[in-house]
Amino acid sequence: MRSDVLIVARPGRTPHIEGRGAIAGRRTQSDTVHLVSSAATPLGGDAISIRIIVESRARLSVRTVAATVALPGAATVESHATWTLEVAGELDLDPEPTIVAATARHHAATHLTLAANGAVRVRERIQIGRTGERQGFWSGSLHADVDGRPLLRHRVELGHGSYADDDIAAPRACVSELRYPHVATDAAGTTLELAGGGGLSTWQGDRLHSRP
């Protein structure tokens, strides 16, 4: 199944939302949208595409109502999700964790384009496996530019078959948080200040905490 969502935030107006497939957007406050799944997704073979546009002087917060559970499908174990973020105003993107269950292999990519005066907070939380499961795999990439200049190229793999895979002590959970133009002082893990402004905070471990 393919799911597509478009959210456009304009100053002085409620967000515009379009969608098809298994994911829909719901306005929950004047500047907040929650993503809701109407069917189980992503299953193996599914592709999710979410595009968010925040115009100059607009503010938008995007959340999800529940964790995302990636599951293997009947024909393939692989699924894909792509986030395209075009930000000239202020965006706070903080979905609930993605759980990669059973033998699922989920690939996520985030492409962020920021205007010179844009501001962003993007947090991603990943857990390999439900209780007792260790066979899932996740890869995530973050490609961020500011005013046409590269800000960050970041990629992480977790789980079975990843570069860091180890039966004894390999991490099975991670949190990544990008903030621009400010550097986080309250994010989980280690924060790296970026040469172009802002900072990337990363944490890895065996299990996500309730409030990492």
Rank of each mutant, 00 (worst) to 15 (best):
R2D: 11
T202V: 08
S201Y: 14
T98M: 14
A101F: 06
A144M: 01
D147P: 09
I128T: 02
G189T: 03
R20L: 05
R13V: 02
V5Q: 04
V33W: 07
R59H: 06
I50C: 05
R155I: 00
T113L: 08
R207F: 13
R63Y: 10
R134W: 12
W203I: 07
E96T: 00
D166G: 07
W203E: 13
A47V: 09
I50S: 02
A187K: 10
G161V: 00
H34K: 10
R105I: 09
L142V: 03
T41M: 10
G129V: 07
Y163H: 12
D147L: 07
V62N: 06
R63M: 12
A195Y: 06
A81Q: 15
E193N: 04
L43C: 10
H154W: 15
T191N: 04
A173T: 00
C174G: 05
Q204E: 12
A81K: 07
T41C: 11
V54S: 02
D186S: 14
H107F: 15
D166Y: 08
S49M: 06
A188R: 03
V8W: 10
Y180M: 02
S37I: 01
L60F: 03
V8Q: 11
L112W: 01
E96D: 04
D165N: 08
L152D: 01
A104L: 12
H182D: 13
T28I: 15
A47M: 13
A66E: 15
T84E: 14
T202D: 02
E177L: 12
L178G: 01
V120N: 01
A144F: 01
V8M: 11
G189F: 12
A195K: 12
G196F: 07
A74Y: 03
I23K: 02
G45D: 08
D4V: 04
T131G: 03
R123P: 08
I128Y: 10
R211T: 02
T98K: 03
D206W: 07
R51F: 08
H16Q: 08
L200N: 06
R121P: 00
V100K: 05
R153T: 03
I128M: 12
A164I: 07
A116H: 03
D165C: 10
G196V: 03
I7V: 14
H16L: 12
A102L: 15
E96I: 00
W83E: 12
A70H: 04
T202S: 04
R207T: 10
W83V: 06
T131L: 15
I48E: 15
R179G: 01
V100P: 14
P171H: 02
I23V: 11
L158E: 09
P42F: 09
H16M: 06
S30V: 04
M1Q: 09
A81H: 07
R59Q: 07
R13H: 11
D46M: 15
T28S: 11
H209R: 15
G118Q: 05
D145M: 14
E55S: 09
P150V: 00
H111A: 07
D165G: 04
R121W: 00
T14Y: 12
P95N: 13
P11A: 04
S56C: 02
P72S: 04
T103P: 07
L192I: 02
A75E: 14
H106K: 07
S79W: 12
R130Y: 13
G198P: 09
S61G: 06
V122S: 01
I168E: 10
D92C: 05
V77F: 01
G205H: 14
A24H: 11
L71I: 00
